[in-house]
Design a protein around this nucleic acid. Structure first.
Length: 885
RNA sequence: GCCGGAGUGGCGGAAUUGGUAGACGCGCCAGACUUAGGAUCUGGUUGGGUAACUAGUGCAGGUUCGAGUCCUGUCUCCGGCACCA
């Protein structure tokens, strides 16, 4: 109840704001009725959502699962960006409820992870304490905005009752592999096939790898590729270096193709789907074996242009390539080792910065180009990366920008094998020694290419692939940019791995031992070395006499990978989510389970990719009913400062939502954020704009209420139980129609504009029709729930006949009467030569001929026709007449 | 460089299938009520012109009876990716 206490404090505290210094000056008493209704809704559990199996569950209603990206409860509290998406989903949720849906609209906290831990370290408090405080603050702020969340379903990723199941899902990943059909399946199948321990470990979806990883000394942990931006950590901006470490990885690459393909069935913005596709980075090509001139080894390269093989004049392998040592000749050894060393010491940032200038060293070795048996030199260079393809390329400088640059710098031969136009002189087969003047990386026609000569690139690719396959020299392959997900962190504030080590081997702990709590540590700071902080609790580490626990923790993303599932059945202690609840809320016959997911673009390739991956594993294993988690995704646009710049403390342009609520009320904040512009768009804040919607709400208030000389409010005498006139009725029904349609389209700004039009029509009427206004309040309710609820109860107090039991949100969305929308007359525009010259009101049923006649009779039209003959006459019924002379 | 999105009054933004450009709000101007107005109400508000009229949706063309909307070219801004062979 601390939130209520805080509200009382706001109400009684003397305000230092210059504009409104007391409640008397407020245009309407929002600071009285907003907390009142919030308390009322909470007390009566107005937004509790029954689950299948509950006594008050109505199975005949369709479901609607509307989800917000749950926040990190940071110490800074809510910023104005949060309520933007949250208000949008709240409006949708309330509307869907009124239109007869069972609505699931929950909220929770993504409380593990680096930001929370960095904050705890900064303030010197245990992350458990700061996290609890921050959650408390966030919850209070959200409650003061009147969101219709079912708080009984609140989740907290740091709650043992929650992360028990995060750990449980990890053990599922650990004990699964991807079978021939490309689906996750239990590892026991491999055991049954009699595979060795090593073979099984090599196929787990969660596996241990000793590879170069992104180590961030500043944060004292390793990071996923996705968390490294320009060689710096996404959190904190500390430099990141590559170093080999033993880490836990998740085999997301096994799902790369499905993660691309199954985007197709989703209602996501095209830009986000593209972002994911590009991140996964599928490319089709071929692997080709090159034998070495002076050894038995072969080097396999990956190329997307097998058609250019005749133009491969040298080879480049990554400095870390395992065959570097055996290729390098004695003379080149010193130079090669020096280069390897210099590359290894470079951070990713330096490597990116130095990307403009190509570097590399000749190994002294040669490979044989299998298409023409030419000896080509093998170089090492850092522009070839060990992590992609095979870590080796055949360089075709004439047709690849990077190879061109490298060859030009080191004076390597350049041979043209693709021409923009086919060479038809029949001499395309002879090798032209003239080097081309520029790199040509496009598709074209093969030249100087033996059996490919004259062929278009597409055909030449296929022919070469077949040729290679027949000779046993290579095969068509697909490569992805996506790497496996580095899943372990050397931090305290995360889920401990449910893994123990014994005799150098790992195994998962039994489900009965979950949740595995982290040790209670006084000193939870990073050790400054790759040794995780959990090592500071020796008692905890010692699992048995011979076994020790895994010391790493999971990354922040773990908890957010499945929280939407937990909402379906948040209290379940037997299962991560009950079967019936999962089937109901996540079902619905579409690929994705959540009907609408609203959040920022910053998660386009992180959270949204990881969650899809986990969901697919759970789907394959039979734990969830859909292949995808989120059917429809909408990204809200960033809210900028009044100066049009990104909000930041250093710029001093940050708007605190608490201040806005205090001065103008929660409804004003909600309404303003929706009125600013289209949800997806980036838009600047404007305090004047807030005042604008505040004035609108005040006008709605005064439609119903009037103030006496003492400043007391009572129901206005102008409000009477009379039917609305035809004009007002028309506007009202237009508003019902348009607002319903606009909510479905998420066009809240235009819906609000229409409500303003409607309010203006009511204001203009001398007598205010009570029942029409009561109907209007139902439309306003999802947007400004406090005001609508208050006015509903005020109207009911004066007109008992209009009283309806329960809350506004329990009522049905009003239906509009199509007959009320039709006018007897429409305005027809008369154009001469496409220019507007006159208009007239014409009966709706008027025929084309009648309209035509009226138009031609218009003196203004005649004037502009200047007596010229009519060339053409276009009549668009209900719209216009255009006379061409 | 590549990919994606967007350019409309002083500002945020409206405008089904091509059919009255500028809804709604902000700001501004004038008036009313007022001791007062930074409250409220009424009216006005794209530019030029007293006016009739005319120009006008980044720019240049095109299609059409008619283009913010369709086509071609071009410029600018925002977001993302960036040695991925």
């Amino acid at each position: 109840m601390s939130s209520t206490r805080r509200l009382r404090f706001f109400m009684s505290a003397p305000s230092c704001a210059p504009r409104m210094s007391s409640d008397q000056r407020k245009a309407f008493p929002f600071s009285e009725f907003e907390p009142k209704w919030q308390a009322e809704w909470e007390a009566k559990q107005a937004f509790r959502t029954p689950n299948p199996g509950d006594s008050d569950f109505d199975a005949t209603k369709p479901k609607y699962f509307v989800l917000d990206m749950f926040p990190y409860p940071s110490g800074a509290g809510l910023h104005v960006g949060h309520p933007e998406g949250y208000t949008a989903t709240d409006i949708i949720g309330r509307y869907k409820k009124m239109t007869g849906h069972n609505v699931l609209h929950p909220m929770g906290w993504d409380a593990f992870g680096l930001p929370a831990e960095q904050y705890a370290i900064k303030t010197g408090q245990h992350p458990r304490v700061t996290t609890e405080q921050n959650i408390e603050g966030f919850r209070g702020q959200l409650k003061r905005l009147g969101f219709a969340y079912d708080w009984s379903r609140e989740v907290n990723t740091t709650d043992p009752g929650y992360f028990k199941w995060t750990q449980w899902i990890f053990t599922k990943l650990y004990n699964s592999y991807v079978n021939e059909a490309g689906k996750a399946a239990p590892i026991s199948e491999l055991e049954a096939q009699g595979l060795s321990r090593a073979e099984i470990d090599a196929r787990r979806l969660a596996y241990v790898s000793e590879a170069p990883v992104n180590w961030c000394p500043g944060l004292g942990t390793v990071l996923a590729n996705e968390e490294v931006v320009d060689g710096k950590s996404e959190v904190g901006g500390f430099p990141v270096e590559r170093r080999p470490m033993r880490q836990w990885m998740l085999r997301i690459t096994a799902f790369a193709q499905r993660l691309i393909d199954e985007l197709d069935g989703l209602d996501w913005p095209e830009s986000i789907r593209l972002l994911q596709r590009n991140w996964i980075g599928r490319s089709e090509g071929a692997e080709v074996k090159f034998s070495l001139a002076d050894s038995d080894h072969t080097i396999t390269v990956f190329t997307t242009r097998p058609d250019t093989m005749f133009g491969a004049t040298y080879m480049v392998i990554a400095p870390e390539h395992p065959l570097v040592d055996s290729i390098t000749t004695a003379e080149q050894k010193a130079e090669v080792e020096a280069y390897q060393k210099s590359v290894a010491s470079k951070s990713d940032l330096e490597r990116t910065e130095l990307a403009k200038d190509k570097t590399g060293v000749f190994t002294g070795g040669f490979a044989i180009n299998p298409v023409n048996d030419e000896k080509i030199p093998v170089w090492i260079a850092d522009y070839v990366m060990m992590g992609y393809g095979t870590g080796a390329i055949m360089a075709v400088p004439a047709h690849d920008e990077r190879d061109w640059e490298f060859a030009t710098k080191f004076h390597l031969p350049i041979r043209e094998v693709v021409a923009a136009a086919p060479k038809l002189d029949g001499d395309g087969g002879s090798v032209c020694e003239m080097e081309p003047a520029a790199c040509f990386a496009n598709e074209g026609y093969a030249v100087n290419s033996g059996f490919l000569n004259g062929m278009a690139t597409q055909g030449a690719k296929k022919k070469m692939a077949t040729w290679l396959e027949e000779k046993g020299l290579g095969k068509g392959t697909v490569n992805f940019k996506l790497r496996d997900w580095l899943f372990s962190r050397q931090r305290y504030w995360g889920e401990p791995f449910p893994i123990v080590w014994e005799d150098g081997q790992h195994r998962s702990i039994p489900e009965t031992e979950l949740p595995l709590l982290p040790p209670t540590l006084e000193d939870f700071k990073p050790t400054g070395t790759p040794l995780p902080p959990l090592s500071k609790a020796p008692d905890w580490v010692q699992y048995s006499e011979t076994a020790t626990r895994e010391l790493n923790t999971m990354p922040q993303w773990a908890g957010s990978c499945w929280y939407y599932l937990r909402y379906c059945d948040a209290q379940n202690s037997e299962r991560f989510v009950g079967e019936a609840a999962e089937k109901y809320w996540m079902g619905g016959g579409k690929p994705g389970g959540v009907d609408l997911y609203v959040g920022g673009t910053e998660h386009a390739v992180l959270h949204l990719l990881y969650a899809r991956f986990w969901h697919k594993v759970l789907f394959d294993l039979g734990y969830v009913s859909t292949p995808e988690p989120f059917q429809k995704l909408v990204n809200q646009g960033l809210i900028m400062g009044e100066d049009g710049q990104k909000m930041s403390k250093s710029r001093g342009n940050v708007v605190n939502p608490d201040d806005v609520v205090k001065e103008y009320g929660a409804d004003s904040l909600r309404l303003y954020e929706m009125f600013m512009g289209p949800l997806e768009q980036v838009k600047p804040w404007s305090m004047k704009g807030v005042e604008g919607v505040y004035r609108f709400l005040a006008r709605v208030w005064r439609l119903v209420m009037e103030q006496n000389a003492e400043g007391e409010w009572s129901v206005s005498a102008a409000l009477q139980d009379v039917p609305a006139d035809k004009q007002v009725t028309k506007v009202l029904h237009e508003t019902i129609k348009k607002c319903g349609e606009d909510i479905e389209k998420l066009s809240f700004n235009t819906a609000i504009a229409q409500m303003m039009v409607c309010t203006n029509a009511f204001t203009a009427a001398a007598v205010k029709p009570a029942s029409a206004i009561a109907t209007f309040l139902k439309v306003l309710g999802p947007f400004a729930p406090h005001l609508a609820e208050e006015l509903k109860s005020r109207i009911a107090s004066k007109f008992p006949a209009l009283a309806v039991k329960g809350f506004l949100s329990d009522e049905s969305w009003p239906e509009y009467d199509p007959a009320a929308l039709i006018e007897d007359e429409v305005e027809i525009v008369f154009q001469v030569n496409g220019k507007l010259r006159d208009k007239a009101r014409v009966a709706i049923q008027a025929s084309k001929e009648e309209i035509e006649k009226i138009a031609l009779a218009s003196p203004r039209v005649q004037e502009f026709m200047e007596g010229k003959p009519i060339k053409k006459l276009i009549v668009v019924p209900g719209k216009l007449v255009n006379i061409v002379v």
